[in-house]
Amino acid sequence: MSDMVCNIVSGIVYLILAPVIGGLLAGIDRKISARMQRRVGPPITQPFYDFFKLWDKQPVAVNKAQRFYIRGFLLFAILSGFFFFAHGDLLLVIFTLTIASVCFVIAAYASNSPYSQVGAERELAQTMAYEPMMLLVALGFYLHCGTFDAKAIVQSPAMNFIYMPGIFIGLCYILLIKFRKSPFDLSMSHEVHQELIQGALTEISGPTLAMIELAHWYENVLLLGFVYLFFAWAPIWTPVVGIAMCALTYFSDIVVDNCCSRMKWEHMLSSAWVVTLVAGFANVAFLMYMR
């Protein structure tokens, strides 16, 4: 019983803290990127200013469906994180996250704008690229720890990373897609103006755009949670390692973002699948052999 209370409390802590952490991460991202381009850059709290500003703007939506699906996106993004941090089932988390991205794609399809349509198509291609690897991550943890339960996984006797380096590499690769970083920022990013305006976000404005930002903050914290699972094990001090590795992963993604130009979607899809096949499957085969 007390276990359940503990789970729910950690889930609620996630609900409250994730937007703060996610927003700060986005701010740090912008600051570091600016420094890399020899600019001063905005203050770290800038994403919050943006968020509250968007919230106060005049609500303009193309149609009712768009608003509905964006709410769905936010809801399912929050829900999947809640399941994760309340120590739920990893599979449930991944499937809920998929529903969230489906909502996002439908919201982008809701308008007739060609930019939005192309953005939605690219978003679908991105989903196709990262989804197999997400499932392999869950499968890998199951093969190694014998459970999909996040709590049992972080309590395993040795560092999970030692047995699953291939899966971790695969996860890092698709994290670039999920964080919407170059070279995979195809469907939407703050820099897409030239070819696609803002891609899937073109027709979304004001409070609905704020909701999308919020959902991304929740999503990013959840994804870093997956990185954490690799580097935390039974001893009490290991969360430090886990959090340090999350920070390192995020930082290296920012570096890659600033060093790369955008890829074509064909290259993204094929390279993501090659990484999934080589690193992911080899690792899964190894784990099966170990059992």
């Binding site: 912008r30 600016a34 381009q37 020899r38 600019r39 001063v40 850059g41 905005p42 203050p43 800038q46 200013y49 943006d50 500003k53 703007k57 303009v60 703050h190 103006h193 030239q194 305006i197 803002q198 976000l201 073109t202 027709e203 979304i204 404005s205 755009l209």
Partner: peptide, 21 residues
Amino acid sequence: TPLYDVERFGIVNTGNPKHAD
């Protein structure tokens, strides 16, 4: 450009009127 860097005031040059103020 880095010399003037308006982004330090939070100014973003979006290409999208729907996001602009």
